[in-house]
Structure formats: structure tokens, C-alpha cells
Design a protein around this nucleic acid. Structure first.
Lengths: 126, 126, 126, 126
DNA sequence: GTGGTCTAGACCACG
DNA sequence: GTGGTCTAGACCACT
């Protein structure tokens, strides 16, 4: 089940889109898997169908899903590109953080220890 | 001079506040340095004074500056706390990036190399 | 066998109709050739018979096929008119593209080289 | 004034977006030119503001405009990339038309004459 | 005043 | 049943 946080400053449609993108790119939802229908998800989350519709439109624009009129929305089969983009984004983010921390006086050892911390944290959950 | 980017999606007041905070926490502006007056900065940037006022309010709320009625706004002298907060924030961000990248299949070596890249990048500019 | 692309944004009935029209106008299917029955094609493509029915209706309306009650659907023998229409359509499309490209600053040489490219591409496949 | 065609099968928001994109890429609207406000254009065209809003969202996603909260929407200054994309699109379209026409029996001379026709048509209007 | 988000409800096209 | 478009009107954030 999706988790929506009304106190989050991000719009609802973006939260929903991000959650599905995460599931798609992580392989939790395989290619060609059908997403819940706009109307069904709307009642499940107690959210207006238009908002769900918008979330799905965003996902289609991002290339995460494809939509077929009269049939439904489905995960795009080839996710390798999506994963690459996501990794590149994370890479840039990590570099930026490290760079900024150094400028604020963090030592090289600090940074590497944080990175190590993130690594073990990521492996544990696997 | 401050740099404002109208094409940035962030609100103007936030851009201005972030720039001042960056200068304060990096030591570019020392403690008790006086900030430009609301009106003066407004005409310099060709921006509504209300926007500047709000930026300063945000900075005061963040503890980056203090304001003295009738005199002006000044950088908070003790920046160590601010720097600590900022570093903690960067640390969490770096850990999150590393963690997420691992989950997407990045290797331990990748992460450490990226961190190293950020370190050298940060040192170069010093 | 017909090729259906569920990720295509065009409706299924249109994809099917276009494929048959293409085969008819190119001579791949000769005049009076019988098309597969609605029910048969429906099971072959795992598609709702209504969709096939609609595709055939579109083709009949376009003049590409004729239907005989109780016998089936057949390619219209005289394809010269269809081919003329199609060519006229392509001609207009090509002129429009060239015209628009010129307005955007493309040179006369560019256009002619593109046209030449299309020509060789079309001849190669023959 | 924009021209909206209710008999066009394309959605209204797409018609509006296309018209503005055309004006931007052709230089009719220079960089940083402000577009009419969402509400104003809505009353001018007697169209719901949401529809205009969506058209503008599409344009922003395409990189044709940028939007500033509280100020308005503006044409993206650097249009060179947009023009390149548009030209590449026209190029592919022209090649496809020529290729298809050849396959339907058009002669090389036909194609070149059509291309020439498009060229002169484009130049005349300049 | 500006743009952005969300809700509610209608209508159409597709399968 | 499905997705897609449009209208009407509300509320919020920003300048």
C-alpha cells in the first residue's frame, strides 16, 4: 500500500509518482505490471481521481509507465535506462554533499566514514 | 553582490536567505557584520522590499542573523552551532545517497570513489 | 501476422486498420483477397472482437475493403484511387515539412539533401 | 491573438501550447517575454483557467517557458536548442514522407519537385 | 495581482 | 470497465 503524508510539502501527485517510480526502478514492480486503476487508487487513498491521473501522467512523461486507453497503466519493461538516470542523480548528490562538507571544515576521514555508514546501511536492508 | 536566478523554482526570499546563510556559515561574512538594509537591497536587486523583509525574517528565525530595531540586521557571532547543524544535514544527505545507490546496485567501490571525487573537488576550491 | 504495439498511443483499432491499409495500398495484399474473419483475428491477436469489428468498419469507410454479408471482408480491387490519395497526402506532408524547416532557417541545400536521403532510403528497401 | 479550433481532435491545452511554442521557436516572441497570465488568457479565450494552466505546464516541461510564482510565465531566452530539436523533427518527417512516397511508386523527380515546392513556399512568406 | 494544487463532477473515447 | 479532457470553484504560496 502506498503511503501518503499530508504534512509533506511536496504535492500529493508527486509523492504518489515518486513512490511508484521507486518501486519500478527497484524492481519491486516488474515490467508490464499493471498499476491500480485511477479510480480504484483514488478511493483506496481517499484522494480525488484527478490527482491520481496527474501522478500517472507525470510517470508516463518520465518514462516509468505507459498507458493504454481502455486497458490501464503498466510499468515500462525496460528499466535499465531509468536505473542509470537515478544512479547518476544519486552520484551527483553524493559528490555535492561531500564537496560542501569539505568546504565547511569536515575532514577527509569524516566523509569516508559517512560513506561507509551509508554503504553498510544499504547492504543491511538487502 | 547577491545572485538571483528568476528561473530557479525556489522562491526569491528563499534564494536570498540561502545565499546569506551560506556566506555566514562559510565565514565569508564575519560575526556582527551588518547586512544591507531592506530598502537598499530591494533597490539593488530591483525586488519588492517585502521579499527582502521575508528573507531576513527567515534568517532571523534560523538563527543566522539578529536584528536590532532602528539599527539594522547583523550576522550572529557564534556560528559554530550553525555550522554543526549544516554539517549534520550534509552527513545525513550523504548517507542517504550512498544507501539508496547501494540498493540500486552500485558497488561499495563506486560509492567510495564518488566520495573521494567530492573530497578532491571540495579541496581544490579552497 | 499483424503487429500490435500496446505501448503505441494510437487506439488498437486504428493500428489494425492502418496495417491492413498499408498492405492493401502497397500491393502486399492483392484485390479481392479475403481478410481473416473477425472472430479468427480476435483470437489470433488475443483482442476483443469488437475492436476488430471496428477496425474493419473503419477500413470499409475508407474504401480499402468491402464486406459481403455471410461471406467475409475483401480488399477493394481498384487500389489506384487509394494510392493516389495516399500519395497526395504524403506530398502535402513533405511540402509542409520543407516549408516549416525553411522558416526555421534551414537552407535550400539542407532540404534537398534530406529529400535525397529519403529517396535512397525508400529505394534501398525495395 | 491565439486561434483555438474546437473541431480539432487535439486537446485544447495542446493546441494552446503548440501555438506558443511555434511563436517562441520562430522568434515571434523574444526571450524573457512575459506570456499572458493564466486567468487573463482564460477569460480572453473563454476557457477554464485550469486548461491554460495545463498548457503552460506542458510548455514548461518542454523547456519553452519558465514560470515564476507570483510573477508570471516567460519565454525561455535560449531557444537555440529548441530550434534544433524542431528542425531534427521536421527532417525526420520529411525523410519519412519521401521514403514512403517512393515505396508507393513516386519517382525521384516527383519527390525533388515537391521539396522544391516546399522551399519556395517557405521563402515566399519570409 | 501571480502561479500551483486539489476537489468535485461531467463527458468522451477505447476495449 | 479503462484512461483522458474539460469545467467550476476553492485554497495556498509568492511578489
Amino acid at each position: 500500500m502506498l503511503h501518503i503524508d499530508y504534512r509533506d510539502s511536496r504535492p500529493l501527485y508527486e509523492q504518489i509518482a515518486d513512490e511508484f517510480e521507486h518501486m519500478a526502478v527497484c524492481g519491486v514492480m516488474a515490467g508490464d505490471t499493471q498499476l491500480p486503476s485511477v479510480r480504484q487508487l483514488a478511493v483506496d487513498l481517499s484522494i480525488n481521481p484527478n490527482t491520481i491521473q496527474r501522478a500517472y501522467a507525470v510517470l508516463e512523461q518520465r518514462g516509468v509507465i505507459y498507458s493504454v486507453k481502455g486497458r490501464g497503466n503498466f510499468i515500462t519493461p525496460d528499466c535499465s535506462q531509468l536505473r542509470q538516470n537515478k544512479l547518476e542523480q544519486l552520484r551527483q548528490q553524493l559528490i555535492d554533499s561531500a564537496c560542501a562538507a569539505i568546504k565547511l571544515g569536515a575532514t577527509k576521514e569524516h566523509i569516508l566514514s559517512w560513506a561507509q555508514q551509508g554503504i553498510t546501511q544499504g547492504e543491511v536492508i538487502l
